[in-house]
Design a protein around this nucleic acid. Sequence first.
DNA 1: CCTTGCTCCTCACGTTACGTGAGGCCCTAC
DNA 2: GTAGGGCCTCACGTAACGTGAGGAGCAAGG
Lengths: 246, 246
Amino acid sequence: MTTPPWKVGELARRTGMSVRALHHYDDIGLLEPSLRTPAGHRLYDRADVERLQQIQSLRLMGLSLDETKSMLDGASMSPRHVIDLHLARLHEQIAMQARLAERLAALAQHLDAAESTSVDELCRIIEAMTRMEKYFTAEQLEVLRERRVGVSLERAKEVQESWAEIIPKVRNAMESGMDPASPEILAIARRWQDLVAEFTGGDPAIANAVATMYTSEGPALAEKLGPVPDQAMFQYMSRSFAALKA
Amino acid sequence: MTTPPWKVGELARRTGMSVRALHHYDDIGLLEPSLRTPAGHRLYDRADVERLQQIQSLRLMGLSLDETKSMLDGASMSPRHVIDLHLARLHEQIAMQARLAERLAALAQHLDAAESTSVDELCRIIEAMTRMEKYFTAEQLEVLRERRVGVSLERAKEVQESWAEIIPKVRNAMESGMDPASPEILAIARRWQDLVAEFTGGDPAIANAVATMYTSEGPALAEKLGPVPDQAMFQYMSRSFAALKA
DNA sequence: CCTTGCTCCTCACGTTACGTGAGGCCCTAC
DNA sequence: GTAGGGCCTCACGTAACGTGAGGAGCAAGG
C-alpha cells in the first residue's frame, strides 16, 4: 500500500490530516477522491494528493476552506489580491487583540494594587477603565497610569475624602448664591486646583477631558462614585479660578 | 417606560445589546429576568440590569459567555487567575497571527518578484517557504531574504542552470569511482563552493542547514526542483573540498 | 468456514454566540 | 374591529471539523 491510489486512512497518515477532515473536504467538494472501490471506499490518486498538498499550503496561510476552494477552482480574484485582503484582515485582528491585551494587562495591574479581588470590584474597575478610554487619548491614559502607580493607597483614599468634602461645600455655596470670589470659595478653589493638578500631572488637556467626562456621564458616575461635579459646578468654579488669578 | 422593570426591547435599547442576545443569555442561564408578565414577557429589574452591566464588562475583556457565567456565579478561580490565563492565551494567539502575517508578507514579496501569479506557482512558493522554515532559523531566513532581493531574476536562472549542469556531472564522476581530488572534480568543487557562497552569503551554518534539508527531504525536493544532491554526494564533495584546501 | 480485528462507510450531534426569519400572541391606538 | 409594533417560542445557519453510533469490507488465524 505504498503506492497510489491510497485509501483515506493511508492518505491521512502520510499527510498528517485526520480521516474526518478528508471526509469533510469530500463533503464540501474541496477534495473529492477521483476513485472509489466497489464497496465505496475512497481512493485518492496522484492528482488528488497534489491537490491536497495545495490545500494544505493555502490553509497554512490562513485561508478558509471556502477561500481555498475558490482559489484552487480558479473562480476567484488574483492570488495577490486575496493575499493582500487577507493580510489586511490579519493586521486588523492583531491590532484588536493587542489593544485587548493592553487592557487586560492594565486590569491585572489594578488588581494587584487593589487587594480586594471580588468579581464585583473587578467589574467596577473594568467599567471605569472602559469609560476612561472613551474620554482620554492613549498618551493621556499612560500619564494617568504613571501618576496612579506613583501614589500610595492611603493618599488615594485621602484624595477621595477630600473630594467628598469639597463637592457638597461648593454645591451649598453655589445654591445659596455665594460669590465665587469670596475668600471661602477661593480657599476651596485652591484645594480643588491642587487636587486636580495632583491627579492630572498638571496637564490641562487631561483636566478638560475629566470635566467632559463628568458633565456627559454625571448621573452614571454619581451612582458609582458618590457626589460628582456637574456642568454648573464647573462653571461656578471657573469663575472662582479666574478670581484666584487676578 | 423609563423606570425598571424594563421589557427586553427597552433594555436592549438602553444597553446596546440585541434582543436576540438577551434571549440567548436567558436560554443559557447567564441572565434570567427576575420577573415575567402574566403573558410571559420578560421583565428585567435593577439587579438584572446591574448583572448585565457586569456581563458586558467581562465580555469586553474577551471572556466567553461560559467564563463570564462562572465568574459571576462565583464557582470559579480568582479573577486574577482568570485574567492571567486569558492574557497568556491572548499573547499566544497574537504571536501566532504575527508569524502568519510575516509569512504572508514574505509571500507577497515573492509574488511581486515572480510575475507569474498562477495559483500553482503560489502553492509552490508557499511549500518552499514552509520547508525552509523547518530548517533555518529566523535570522538565517532574513539573510536569505536579503540575498534574494539583491539578485536579478536572470542571475537566479543562471544559478539554477549551473546546478542542473553540475549535479549530473558529479553523480557520474562519483558512480564511475573518479578521485574527488582529480582536477576535473576540483574545478567543479570550486564552482560548487562559489554557488553556495553566493546563495548563503558565506555563512557555513546556512550551508549546513541547506545540506540537512536536502539529505532529509531529497526525494520530495527532487520532484519539484529536478536533480538534487544527496547524502552520498555531499560526502563525496566534502572530500573534494578538503583536497581543494590542501 | 468462521471469527477476530482493523479499516472503511454514512449519519448526526456538539462546538461559539448569536442572526434571521416563521408563525403566532399581547397590547395600544384609531 | 383592526392595524401596527413588540413580544413569545421554535429552529435553522454559521466554520471546521471531533466524536461516537451502527454497520460493512477485508485480510489472517484457527
